[in-house]
Amino acid sequence: MPLLDVKDLSVTFARRGQRTVRAVDGVSFSVEAGEVVGLVGESGCGKSVTSLALMGLLPKQRGVTIGGSAMFGDTDLLKTDERTMRDIRGRDVAMIFQDPLSSLNPVIPIGIQVTEVLTRHRGLTGAKATAEATDLLNRVGIPDPTRRLKEYPHQLSGGMRQRALIAMAVACAPKLLIADEPTTALDVTIQAQILELLRGLVRDSGTALVMITHDLGVVAGMCDTVNVLYAGRVVESARRKPLFADPRHPYTTGLLGSVPRLDAGKGERLHAIRGSVRDVLPWPDGCAFAPRCDRRVDACVGEPPALVEGVHRHAYRCVNPESRTVEVPS
């Protein structure tokens, strides 16, 4: 049984006087213990809303509807009450956000914020908590941790703040860590440090990691399984190597073709995807990607493409998939 099994997760936002927005539209994926799972997509694909829904952090009222299930052990993260969720959050499931500055309380020293987590979930207090906090900061590579504990978030650099946030997230050795664009706000060399730190944490502690990112490069270097999201649905899902070696969905190939690569020669033209993320066909009317797709056929419009399961859990949602090996008979 997987550690986390998300089935048909959907989130809609309805605001008075405005069109209802289906931010997440039937997302399914599972995370095995100790596995790194990537959710990749561009802005508006629903990846962040997915993570917030899993953490129970979406506002529970005012036109927000959450459907589907997310089984974490015996608990459905989507249906459990707020009190149980508060216990699970931080202890069993922890989250790291994109912007470390706004996720830390600016007027409370780092040390108190870290020990707070330790007191809340592990019952540590006083000198014991401080010692553990020092140890945690040390583990995430913050130099001179005793001193850092007394400092305020703004006194740390972006990279150090993200480390502090990771320290808080792993304080209770959670079974699952959700990282939402953890390195997007950081410089490349700092990004490399943080990714290395996350890799180490996963390797050493066996924590499962859901990595939410727009960067295919980050995915290629980190994830065991990758889910590519477009307009609120998983359009392709595969193990890391098959996905990059043999991408089937035109959106995946489009994304891969759009990224300038260090190892490509100068003057090689990028294969851009035309149009913008706004040109989306609503899923019930067909494939949302159809308006931008170069491989569009008549069958793309009418009803949403079914999920095609290939070998080795390689699944995609396309009626006219790309193929580097076999041509699909029409």
Binding site: L216, G217, V218, A220, F244, A245, R261
Partner: peptide, 9 residues
């Protein structure tokens, strides 16, 4: 430090 979208690399 630049991630390359290719697992082999």
């Amino acid at each position: 430090a630049v991630p390359v979208p290719d697992p082999e690399i």
